[in-house]
Structures are given as structure tokens and as C-alpha cells.
Amino acid sequence: MSFLYTDSLRKEFGGVIAVSDVDFKVEKGSITGLIGPNGAGKTTLFNNITGLDTPTEGCVFFKGMDITNLASYKITRLGIARTFQNIRLFKEMTVFENVMIGRHFKGTHPHLTKNSFINAFLGLIYVKKEEKDIYENSLKWLKFLGLENLHSELAKNLPYGKQRGLEIARALATEPELLFLDEPAAGMNPFETDELMKLIKKIKNLGITIVLIEHDMKLVMNICDNITVLNYGKKIAEGNPKEIQNNPLVIEAYLGKSE
């Protein structure tokens, strides 16, 4: 059984079928690419898996557990983190605070973390310990992304590429087992894309399974173990990069049919 899979997932928006009975699967420890022309339903599929949207029909299973109608924050707590296509940082907060939010539900005293409001109220010792843990962990992830020197900048003041990096750091701070990246290379120059490629491999080496939506074919073909192709909401192909490159349906979807 796959690490994560969807069972004929379907999403309709008032009659428009955005995702049509897709069986999408992700193997543990792999990098899975999700590609397809614009409007193919890739982000919609992401949203339905991560709970920001609920599927019209079909199910999502993660580690054998049905997570279909679970609230988004609960899914994150189960170990699925994500980034967003149009970067959603906490713009008015500092770089460091952004990563700290990622540590929100983690703590050395998980059972006490639940009542964080009461704790804050009382200012107990373990709250301080926990805060220290949050500082150290957040710093660890900042360093992982090479952002530690920007810690006190407001997120909105970072250059575009760094913002993408911060979003990844923030997602990693939740210590996910599965990381969804929505177009991480969008707007990057070739040099930055190369850096990103190295970063993704580094994340994989931490034992984190990765799913990415990407239009940069060089990146996708280079680092993905498996690729799934969507077109008009339907899955038209899946396989390793080589199979996908030679699949006539995929070529047709991207280049159009040759007469």
C-alpha cells in the first residue's frame, strides 16, 4: 500500500470538473512530480489532499488512514506540510517568527501544549523550556535554508527567491513526513533553480517524502522518481521520468496533436 494515495478523487466547482476520478499515489521516501498544462487540476488536487478543500467524491489515505474530510490543521499535525503557489507567508511577521509558527503544535510537552493559552497565562517553567525548544528548532531550519542572517527581517521585505525558501523552512519546521511543494521554482533563474534542486535532494535525504508541482521540466526530470501527469482534471500517465518523456499522450497534451 502506498504511503499516500487518493481513491478516485473528484472535485467539481458548480458543474466544472476540476479533478476527475484521479488515483494518485506517493511512495514513501520518493520524490513524486505532478505535472500537466495550466488548469489541469494540479493545485486543486493538492488542496483536496491537504484539507484546504473537500473533495466532491473519493477518498484520501495517508499511512493507511482515511484523512478525506479532516480539517486542514489536523492533516498538518499528522505530518503533511505544504507550500503555496502564490507564496503565503505571514508578511507582517519576521523571518524567525514565521518559522516559529511552524513549530506551533510541536513541543516537549505535547499533552500540555494543547492548553497553550492557560500556560501562557501562568508563565510556567516548562513554557519557557518549550519556548527555548521552539527557538532552537526554528533556528535549525533557518540555517538549513541558509536564512539565519535574515532572522529579523519582515517576511514581506525578502526577495522573491528567499520568500520561497522561507516558506519551505516554515513547512519543514512542522517536521512533516510528507512535503507538498506547489511550483517551488516559479519565477526563479537557472542558478536559483539549481540551488533548489540541491535543496530538494537534501530534504529527501532527511527521510521526507516529497510531492512537487512544477513546470520546469529539467528540474522534474532530474529529481523525480515518479511522475504523474494530469490533463483536463484526468490522470493521463504515470511512471518514471523516462516513461513519461516517451509517452505519446503526454507529448500530445503538451504540444498538441500532430496532424
Binding site: 491537504t50 484539507g51 484546504l52 480539517a71 486542514s72 490543521y73 498538518t76 499535525r77 506540510a81 505544504r82 503555496f84 503565503r88 507567508l89 505571514f90 508578511k91 507582517e92 511577521m93 517568527e97 516559529m100 509558527i101 511552524g102 506551533h104 503544535f105 497553550s116 516554515r170 513547512a171 512542522t174
Partner: peptide, 18 residues
């Protein structure tokens, strides 16, 4: 901090497990 995050971007806050 969680309240500030909600103020800033509610959807991102949800995605952070809040």
C-alpha cells in the same frame, strides 16, 4: 503568535497546524 499568524494569513495558519 498563533493569533498574529491568523491575523496575517488565515489559510497559511491552518496549513501550519493551527
Amino acid at each position: 503568535r498563533a493569533l498574529s499568524a491568523i491575523n496575517d494569513d488565515e489559510i497559511a495558519a491552518l496549513a501550519m497546524g493551527i
